[in-house]
Design a protein around this nucleic acid. Structure first.
Length: 556
RNA sequence: GCCCCCGUAGCUCAGUGGAUAGAGCAUAGGAUUCCUAAUCCUUGAGCGCAGGUUCGAUUCCUGCCGGGGGCACCA
């Protein structure tokens, strides 16, 4: 918002310079308004002169010198300087920052919201774990990322839908049924050899016990195929219920649960295959049907119908993605684990083949999570089927700590998740560092109310903001002002950790301020000004945490 | 062999086509008669290597090295 103003000022000055004949051209190149790293370089800086050098055929510093006198300093801009190779640096007055508080208090829950999304329909599909077992840590990271990306996009003005795709069809579900069936037979005392490719987790035994209790006798009478089917349906339903519960306690709520089976039931899979066949995008070879993904940059063509007549998951995935765009989404974002990266090209191929643009499809690849306990790798024996579930983690460290931890790093990097660290209630654990700000401010406001300095914990207008002039106060105002930019950056890059980093810097600035200055002082005006400021901080912390799905406690 | 991600301080990670690359932890010391010490203040050290593009590269491109993951008529 402040940057926008600076940009206008620069453009105006350039125009004036051209009219006066100081600059030979009125062409304006791509320029940047940035916040310099160093205070001595001002609050904002532009490289206008440098990027204009070739257009104006003038030395950058000369261009800068011709512009600066045309920039009016006044109540907002204190001074303008030329530095280095030709940067024009703007120093703002304290007064320029004061309105930020009013904006926050007025806009409240929508402070920081943006309209860059232009209401474009976007779908974020995430987790989408097969209902063959409970969610584990990796799903947790995907859930945190997907949910936050969706929240952030929504806050940035996109029309967002969160979706979970249920792989409730195919061989895996049958394997699940077989797994339960075999365990069930073992329970009845039969000597059965458990198959290697079956699911081995303890939850399979529990499911077997449950179904045995319910309808065991009846089931054992049935022929095996039918019994396995019953087991499969029962188990998948149970597991999906568990998944929904876990996600709910993780604070994730989907707008839609989409069934893979429904794509078969409505004939969409067949339709997609027929459609591609008719366009010669699918051909037959060795008794199987292949989609020409190679024509779209994949390294080899991929099978959609096997020579035994069964479709592959790729076939339903093609139909699924076609269906998404038919629902009107301009952009579709899939959140996948890094181990699925090889799948990107072929889905992208299907999207392009069905007439969409490649840019309308985006995959967020979330790198793997290393679970640690006290700095040491936490061994998970996958073979035995015992792994740390998302539920275990929520139970042990709490939803807020888990989500914050998952979002603390870019998903492009692997993540070390230390259970001991996530449990600690001190500054090692970033979630408390940020939440503490919210609780501390609530404490201050409560005290102010008790002392009758304010009537209400919440107010919608700043008071005596001119009294905010310490370095720490101006610093806080600058950070508060930058919230919206950070939301936009986070939305544009689809990186929620931008918000994490932002919140950490805001929290740090607040804690420093808190330790140096009293909010409630003997001076009434100053006190009210500071109360307005900290209320603003509180609201921005809350808004930011909400985007990450973390609560903002009133006390800790 | 091919593909994806990563390589920044002792450790875990941010960050940027530009002017002096940041934070936390760890180490050492200090701050509370006062709004929550789950806090703050002070203290050293770094862009894997080699080329290229550019007025300018840690950032973009290529190659190499190192770490993680993936390469089915599996899901």
């Amino acid at each position: 918002m402040m940057k926008h103003t600076i940009r206008k000022i620069v453009l105006n000055a350039a125009q004036k310079a051209f009219e006066k004949g100081i600059l030979p051209s009125d062409k304006v190149p791509e320029m940047e308004i940035e916040e310099p790293r160093h205070q001595s370089h001002g609050d904002f800086s532009t490289n206008f002169a440098m990027v204009s050098a070739s257009i104006q055929k003038m030395a950058p510093r000369k261009i800068a010198q011709s512009l600066v006198p045309l920039i009016e300093t006044g109540s907002l801009i204190e001074k303008v300087e030329i530095a280095g190779p030709g940067f024009i640096n703007f120093f703002l007055s304290n007064k320029a920052w004061h309105p930020v508080v009013d904006q926050i208090l007025e806009q409240d829950k929508i402070y920081g919201a943006s309209d860059i999304g232009k209401n474009e329909k976007v779908q974020v599909e995430f987790v989408s774990a097969n209902p063959t077992g409970p969610l584990h840590v990796g799903h947790g990271r995907g859930a945190a990322v997907g949910d936050s990306v969706a929240n952030i996009l929504s806050f940035a003005g996109f029309d967002v839908q969160k979706e979970y795709y249920i792989n409730d069809s195919g061989r895996q579900i049958r394997t699940l049924g077989t797994s339960v069936w075999l365990r069930l037979l073992q329970k009845t005392g039969k000597e059965i050899k458990f198959l290697d490719d079956c699911y081995k987790g303890a939850y399979i035994k529990e499911l077997a016990e449950e179904i045995l209790e319910k309808e065991g006798d009846e089931l054992i009478q049935k022929d095996e195929d039918e019994a396995i089917l019953v087991c499969a349906t029962f188990a998948a339903k149970k597991i999906l219920e568990g998944i929904k519960e876990d996600l709910s306690s993780f604070g994730v709520k989907f707008d839609q649960w989409f069934s893979e089976q429904s794509l078969y039931d409505t004939g969409r899979v067949q339709k997609a295959i027929d459609d591609f066949k008719s366009k010669d995008l699918i051909y037959e070879e060795d008794g199987a049907f292949w989609f020409r993904t190679q024509d779209f940059g994949d390294e080899k063509n991929r099978v959609v119908v096997r020579n035994n007549g069964l479709t592959t998951y790729f076939a339903s995935d093609i139909a699924y993605h076609m269906e998404k765009y038919e629902r009107g989404f301009q952009k579709v974002i899939d959140v996948w684990g890094a181990d699925h990266h090889g799948y990107i090209k072929r889905i992208d191929a299907s999207v392009v083949a069905s007439g969409r643009k490649s840019e309308q499809f985006e995959v967020i690849l979330v790198q793997l999570v290393n679970l640690l306990r006290g700095g040491k790798p936490f061994q998970m024996s996958k073979r035995a089927g015992d792994f740390v579930t998302l539920k275990d983690i929520i139970d042990e460290v709490g939803k807020d700590a888990a989500r914050f931890m998952f979002l603390s790093r870019s998903y492009d990097s692997g993540l070390d998740f230390d259970l001991e660290l996530a449990k600690q209630k001190n500054s090692d654990n970033p979630v408390y560092y940020v939440q503490y700000v919210h609780a501390r401010i609530t404490g201050i406001l409560l005290k102010a109310k008790q002392e009758s300095i304010i009537q209400d914990l919440d107010f919608n207008k700043g008071e005596y903001l001119d009294f905010l002039n310490t370095f720490e106060e101006i610093n806080l105002l600058k950070i508060l002002n930058a919230f919206k930019e950070n939301v936009e950056k986070s939305a544009e890059t689809l990186h929620p950790h931008v918000i994490f980093t932002y919140l950490m810097s805001l929290a740090s600035a607040f804690h420093s301020y808190y330790n140096k200055h009293k909010v409630i002082t003997d001076e009434k005006e100053l006190t009210l000004a500071r109360l307005s400021l900290v209320l603003g901080v509180k609201k921005v912390i809350r808004n930011g945490l909400k985007l990450l799905g973390v609560t903002a406690p009133e006390r800790m």
